[in-house]
Design a protein around this nucleic acid. Structure first.
Lengths: 139, 139
DNA sequence: GTGCTTGCAAATCGTTTGCAATAGC
DNA sequence: GCTATTGCAAACGATTTGCAAGCAC
C-alpha cells in the first residue's frame, strides 16, 4: 500500500483519493507549503480538486496529529507532516522556511518555566536571513 | 513626561496623541492584545481614532523595536511591548496568552542548531490548557 | 440509503491600500 | 507652507460556511 494511505490509516483518517494526494504531497515536500501552494501543485493532475477540500483536509490532518500547522508567517498558515519537536526558521529575504533540529549534545528540555500549565504543543520559530541569502549578498 | 512618550522617543518614533495612547495601552496591558482589542479599548475615549491608525502604529512600533508581533494565534496577530526574549503560552480553552520566562538556573541558549543562518527574531510558543482552566475543570 | 466527503459560490473577517483631510513644526 | 500623520471607504486575500451533489460501505 502507498505510504500516504498507511500514514492516514495510522492516524485514524479514511484515505480518500484527495486526502492521500495531500498527505503524499506533504510527506514528499518538506518545504512547509501553504494550503494554496498544495492546491496549485495538485490541481493540474486533480482537476476536480477544490481549495475547500485542501483546507478541510489540512484541518483534519492537524486535528489527528498527522501534520502540524505552522504560523511563523503571519500571512498564511503552513503545514508540516513532521510532527516531531523541531524548530523552524523563516528567511525574511527569500521567504523559505527551514527545519532546525536539536544539537546532539543538548537537552530536550527548554529553559522556560511552564508554571503549571498543561502543554500540548510547542512551536519554536526563528526569523532572520538564511545562509543562502547571506552568501548571495556577499557576491 | 509620560512614560509612553519617553518610550516612543527612545525608539525614534514621533509621539503623536494616537501613538502615545496605543503605546500606553500596550505598556499597561500585558494581555497581548490584538489590533482590534486595542481599537475597541481606546475608541470610547478617542472617538476619532481609526482602526487604520491602530494598524499602522502597531507596524511602526514593531519595525522600531518598541513592540513585538506575536503570531501564536493563527486568527489574529497580537502585540507585546516587552521585546525581551520570553516565551508565550496560549490556552486553547480560554484563549488567554501568558508570558513564560526563563528558569533561573538554565542557559539562555536554546538547543537548536542554527546552521549558519542569521537570526534576528526568536519566538517560542506553547499551546495547551492553562492552570486556571485545569482547576476550573476539576471542580 | 444513509452518512461521510467533496466542491462550488458566497460570506466572513483581519489587514492593507488609495487618497483626501488634518495637524505640527 | 511643507511634510508627516490620520481616517474614511474600498479593496484584498486567506479562510470558513451553507448547501447541494457525489461517493462508499
Amino acid at each position: 500500500m502507498e505510504k500516504a494511505a498507511t500514514y492516514l490509516i495510522n492516524h485514524r483518517i479514511r484515505p480518500s483519493v484527495q486526502r492521500m494526494a495531500i498527505m503524499k504531497y506533504l510527506l514528499e515536500h518538506k518545504t512547509h507549503p501553504s494550503a494554496d501552494e498544495i492546491y496549485l501543485a495538485l490541481s493540474p493532475s486533480m482537476v476536480s480538486l477544490s481549495k475547500t477540500t485542501v483546507y478541510t483536509t489540512l484541518k483534519l490532518l492537524t486535528d489527528h496529529g498527522a501534520a502540524q500547522m505552522i504560523t511563523i508567517d503571519e500571512h498564511n498558515a503552513c503545514f508540516d507532516a513532521d510532527t516531531s519537536t523541531h524548530a523552524h526558521f523563516l528567511c525574511k529575504s527569500c521567504g523559505n522556511i527551514y527545519d532546525l533540529f536539536s544539537q546532539k549534545d543538548s537537552k530536550e528540555v527548554l529553559p522556560f518555566d511552564l508554571e503549571g500549565h498543561d502543554v500540548t504543543e510547542m512551536h519554536y520559530y526563528y526569523k532572520g536571513f538564511c545562509k543562502n541569502c547571506i552568501s548571495r549578498k556577499d557576491e
